[in-house]
């Protein structure tokens, strides 16, 4: 076990964990931050997506020792006083069914829109293809991303 310090949702945190522990389990087990979900453990489904310095990463496959000075943002950290525009558009389009994968979907969508303020269908396909939704909310995810883009650009 080793001590690790990192920035989580703009706050310094310190945890004691084995150095190969995936960030997902540090968040969930050590820090009781359960918004980030386990889906596959192999970076195949995107349920555990968080941001590392603003870029989407699969926290199930990222060891805590690899984080270093980078900043981690989770679903709990994207609202800033009010909901993030992507969260608002998710609500406006009533995207979730069971909701389990949606933390990861939203984190991927936020990163997409940060990099590309006006994504095409192909851009959305490319960015979101790593996030599985077994309930099948994809048509609404697509609509919500377009809505957030439109509202962000207006």
């Amino acid at each position: 076990m080793s001590a690790f310090k990192f920035t989580l949702n703009q706050k310094e945190v310190e945890v004691d964990a084995a150095e190969d522990t995936p960030l997902l389990w540090v968040l969930r087990d050590n820090l009781a931050m359960t918004g980030t979900k386990f889906g596959c453990g192999k970076a195949l489904c995107g349920a555990c997506t968080v941001h590392l310095d603003g870029q989407p990463v699969r926290s199930c496959s990222l060891p805590i020792s690899a984080i270093g000075e980078k900043k981690v943002t989770t679903i709990e950290g994207i609202a800033n006083g009010e909901l993030h525009p992507v969260q608002k558009s998710w609500i406006a389009e009533d995207v979730p069914q069971c909701g389990y994968c949606q933390s990861g979907q939203i984190m991927t969508a936020v990163a997409l829109l940060n990099n590309n303020s006006n994504p095409t269908d192909e851009d959305i396909d490319e960015a979101m293809a790593g996030n599985i939704c077994r309930c099948g909310t994809y048509v609404r995810i697509r609509r919500a991303i377009k809505r957030a883009a439109k509202e962000g650009n207006s």
């Binding site: 969930r28 087990d29 009781a32 359960t34 918004g35 980030t36 979900k37 386990f38 989770t74 679903i75 709990e76 609202a79 909901l83 969260q87 998710w90 609500i91 009533d94 995207v95 979730p96 909701g99 389990y100 949606q102 933390s103 939203i106």
Partner: peptide, 27 residues
């Protein structure tokens, strides 16, 4: 009518199977 858990889901607060916190729980 929107689902009652909608905002909790998009903010990561919704409680699924392993999200319950229980003192002393082992995995």
């Amino acid at each position: 009518t929107s689902i009652v858990d909608l905002e909790d889901i998009v903010t990561g607060k919704a409680i699924f199977g392993l999200d319950t916190k229980l003192e002393g729980a082992k995995v």
